[in-house]
Design a protein around this nucleic acid. Structure first.
Lengths: 261, 261
DNA sequence: ACCGTAAGCCTGTCTATACAACCTGTCTAG
DNA sequence: CTAGACAGGTTGTATAGACAGGCTTACGGT
């Protein structure tokens, strides 16, 4: 390993191409959102085969610098609004609910106008799987209300979530009616209307590549991953809601305050 | 666009290969750590060109299912211990420090034996960049002690961190001496020794592909991303420490408790 | 003016081939 | 018995060519 200083390092051409393109992007020669030269143009410019160009572009994709669309080309990643999800939102919601104000959890998080978003709803009554039962601290098979929601702002899908409530707790109430979604004040308000004032939330964010379904539903470009937040809503020692929230990982800014006083 | 139900979808062969291999891995036919068939074997088995096989393997790599090593082959990802980073660790640390117990933040998080890990240290005195100054709430250019640490367990790099302290606060104290690292009780203890009892922590986790440096230092396989936690340690309203903690995203289990009482 | 279609560019997928670099186990020479 | 050379297998890199299918635009008919 020590012998020859640089024995004979053949320059990896795809790396040279990638380096040059990276330089242009970082220097602003190719501004965010702008198309890179097409693969055939790059072939000519660098005198390499198409496979080499594609290798270089794949590298840049894996670095999150560029995105590729079939039939259009490869472009520098555009700046997109990053959504902040701060732990304080729960406290704010709780205060709003107690004081009788409006605004859903989603719009409060997003600072998005009420009218600017829409959602797809799909409510189901299902028995608890082992995993969800574990999170609830109940027996598997207990009946749950499973609420699948897909949020959009200005038509663009932003967030997919599955929220589970104990069916015993909500059956026959307005909360179990999809038509009442979106519910002003969000989840906190719904639980409050059922007589439960939440006392804490446990959030476990995890990262992973999107499933094909998620990639499709959220229009996630190749190479971008998702954050899945597993949320348990507590009233005292009891878990009253379990949710999985899925968003593009690169457009989320999680913010947790841990009080030690 | 509605006409033909399934007009003529040519089966993407690399996807078939990937699906079959994924099935075998998930079924346990190929146990964690075991080598997959070589590319040439797969070429023969599925009657496809090598490029197609490599495409399939690249897909599985991007899903985090397999890893590839030059000259050895591709193997199912071995099970690796996932590290839990729960918000409660700060409270525990604080209680330990107050009661005079030992154990660094890292070992407390990791449940790793004190002797099993090592770290590289690199302390620098630098003026605050705009970004860090913003996080501290101070003027850019204020002198800071920048502590670069690389933690390893059993020789394997696990975590890279950069922790900044106000130089005014630590100059001449034992905290500014790299030889005292690792400091029993970790960051909380160090600040306590300076007369500061922390009252809160703000953590902002973000996910992104690793930079080449990070990929190298942490031995991160292709396709795996990192989580970067930006941490601000508070004493009252004042920020006394700012840190960036970098870890492999797939081996971290973040866990935040948000108290609303 | 409008709309549909077709041309042309672009990426996705696939094949075939070649050589380099790397790892491991084996065999040989000392 | 050990150390070094070597052989064979495996992935990395690169080239060339071909066709499929998505997207945009511009042309042309209505």
């Amino acid at each position: 390993m020590t012998g020859v200083p640089t024995p004979h390092v053949p320059p990896r051409r795809y790396r040279l191409v990638a380096d040059e393109l990276r330089r242009r992007i970082e220097a602003g020669v190719i501004p965010p959102g702008a198309l890179l030269p097409s693969e055939s143009t790059l072939m000519a410019e660098f005198s390499v085969a198409r496979g080499t160009v594609r290798e270089a572009l794949a590298l840049l994709r894996s670095e999150g610098l560029v995105l590729t669309e079939v039939g259009r080309g490869t472009y520098a990643r555009p700046v997109m609004p990053v959504r902040r999800l701060a732990s304080e939102r729960y406290r704010k919601e709780l205060e709003q609910v107690r004081s009788g104000e409006l605004g859903t959890s989603f719009t409060a998080d997003q600072q998005v106008d009420w009218a600017a978003y829409s959602l797809d709803k799909d409510f189901r009554e299902v028995p608890a799987t082992e995993a969800v039962a574990e999170l609830f601290g109940i027996e598997p098979g207990t009946m749950l209300l499973e609420r699948h929601l897909l949020f959009r702002t200005h038509g663009a899908p932003q967030q997919m979530s599955v929220s589970c409530l104990l069916l015993d707790m909500v059956a026959g109430t307005p909360v179990a009616d999809p038509d009442n979604e979106p519910w002003p004040g969000g989840n906190t308000s719904q639980l409050y209307s059922l007589g439960h004032t939440i006392t804490g939330v446990r959030e476990r964010p995890r990262w992973r590549p999107p499933s094909p379904d998620e990639a499709e539903a959220l229009r996630i470009p190749a190479g971008v991953h998702v954050v899945v937040i597993t949320r348990q809503t507590y009233v005292g020692e009891r878990v009253v809601e379990v949710a999985h929230i899925v968003r593009r990982a690169d457009l989320v800014d999680l913010d947790y305050w841990i009080d030690l006083t």
